[in-house]
């Protein structure tokens, strides 16, 4: 059983569903594909996975979300788990937020919606490579 996970955080279920399937298709059964509908839930899942001794390799998160925004979420994650690769997937780039995430959360990449499969594949792949 896979002991490494890729976490997707987005408040839109259509994104989570389609993204999840896309990742699974690209990277196969070697990884666990987890989804969270908000940053808060994302933090919960991280803790659960850690507890289950599953290593979180990559987090793909939206920026504009109810409650906590992507940059804030990444900063929080980074404080505790700096090694997790953080990729922002957003429909609208807020320069300030991106810069904050880069500065304080070591943001790995920014993907813009609508993204292409290749783009996603390449970024995740390089992210995974960074982690290995």
């Amino acid at each position: 059983m896979a002991n490494a996970a890729i976490l997707c955080v987005d408040d839109e279920s259509i994104i989570l569903e389609s993204l999840n399937e896309q990742l699974e298709k690209c990277f196969g059964p070697d990884y666990l594909y987890e989804t969270a509908e908000s940053a808060e839930e994302g933090l919960e899942i991280i803790e659960e996975l850690i507890k289950d001794e599953i290593k979180i390799l990559i987090i793909v998160a939206d920026w504009l979300m109810p409650g906590m925004n992507g940059d804030e979420f990444f900063i929080k994650v980074h404080e505790k788990y700096p090694s997790i690769v953080k990729i922002m997937l957003t429909g609208q780039a807020n320069e300030g937020a991106i810069n904050r995430a880069k500065e304080h959360a070591d943001l790995f990449a920014v993907l813009y919606k609508p993204w292409s499969e290749d783009e996603l594949f390449n970024i995740i792949k390089s992210g995974l490579g960074k982690n290995e």
């Binding site: 987005d10 839109e12 259509i14 994104i15 569903e17 389609s18 993204l19 399937e21 896309q22 298709k25 939206d62 504009l64 997937l89 957003t90 429909g91 609208q92 813009y112 919606k113 609508p114 993204w115 292409s116 499969e117």
Partner: peptide, 17 residues
Amino acid sequence: AHEINTPLGAIKASIGN
């Protein structure tokens, strides 16, 4: 932009899937 790009993203990914 986000509101539109989000469904577009979903659509694009879904079409691939």
